[in-house]
Simulated scan of single mutants.
Amino acid sequence: MATLAGSAWARSALHYGVTALAILLFLLALRRSGERAGRLSEKLENMEKANDLQRRMLEAAARRPRDRGELVDRLRGGGF
């Protein structure tokens, strides 16, 4: 057993095994960070849509008639 671990081909196999494991772990981490970036991008897009809708609702609320008299004036003038 001691001669097997000390042989040149065993050390070489161990070296290649560790290298392959490191590459595999790197690729898995890269995939995970890509998925996270995709989720964050989707979240940002949804927030932008929600903010745009809220802004449009606030602008519409700012243009609304303040009382019944103003509403009647708009209806008579064809402002709607």
Rank of each mutant, 00 (worst) to 15 (best):
G79K: 07
F80Y: 13
A50F: 00
R64N: 03
Q54A: 09
L75T: 01
K43L: 13
S7E: 05
V72E: 15
Y16S: 14
R66D: 12
N46I: 05
L25Q: 06
D67M: 03
L4G: 04
L14W: 09
G38C: 07
S7Q: 10
L24A: 14
E59C: 01
G17V: 03
G69L: 13
A13R: 14
E45F: 02
L25M: 07
R56V: 01
Q54F: 01
H15V: 09
A5H: 04
T19N: 08
I23P: 01
A5C: 01
G34Y: 04
D73E: 13
V18I: 10
R74G: 13
R56H: 02
H15R: 11
S33I: 05
D67C: 03
S12K: 09
L58S: 04
R11I: 07
S33T: 11
R36M: 09
L40G: 04
A13D: 11
R36D: 03
F26I: 02
E42F: 06
K49H: 06
E70H: 10
L30Y: 06
L14M: 12
F80D: 15
R68T: 10
R39I: 00
A60I: 00
S41R: 13
E35M: 09
R68K: 15
E70G: 06
G34E: 14
L44G: 02
G6C: 05
A60H: 04
F26M: 10
D52L: 07
G38N: 13
R74F: 06
G77D: 14
R36I: 11
R39S: 08
L24T: 12
D73M: 12
A20H: 10
R11W: 00
Y16D: 15
E48M: 06
G79C: 06
L27K: 05
H15Y: 12
A13I: 12
E42R: 12
R31T: 15
L58P: 00
Q54L: 09
W9V: 05
E35G: 11
L14N: 15
R68E: 07
R11Y: 01
R64C: 02
A62K: 08
R55N: 02
G77Y: 05
K49L: 06
V72P: 07
V72C: 14
L75W: 10
G78W: 03
M47N: 09
R56E: 10
E45A: 15
L21W: 02
E42V: 08
L25T: 13
M1V: 02
A22N: 09
P65K: 01
A60W: 04
S7H: 11
E59G: 01
A61I: 05
R56N: 03
A62W: 02
R56S: 03
L71E: 12
G34N: 14
L24C: 09
L44N: 08
M1F: 03
R63W: 00
A61Y: 01
A60V: 00
K43A: 15
L30W: 08
